[in-house]
Amino acid sequence: MLTRSLVLSAILFGLGVAGVVVRRNAIILFMCIELMLNAVNLAFVALSRAAGIEGQIFVFFVMTVAAAEAAVGLAIIISIFRHAETVDMKNFNLLRW
């Protein structure tokens, strides 16, 4: 049960990574990040069965971080959208020197 769950979380995490790298739509990007975080949560819960209750407590913290991150991220996307009329990441290259 434990190892299988860990394998599953690894797979889900991989999927999240693929999504982040491949997709250009900002919203989808965020969803993939959420998926990755959940994969981590799964790993935590699975391990809590072996290492005690702390695992589950950490899940809480992960969740709060995920929520905060989603909120701020979406706010950024909205402000960018208001400015650049698109969420396609190709046009956000302000970082480029």
Binding site: L6, V7, A10, V17, A18, G19, V21, A43
Partner: peptide, 21 residues
Amino acid sequence: WIVAGFATAGLTGWLLTRVLT
């Protein structure tokens, strides 16, 4: 990029399973 993406995904998955298991 798609190839790169899924390649890393696969690699990550495989590596994590190796680490975790």
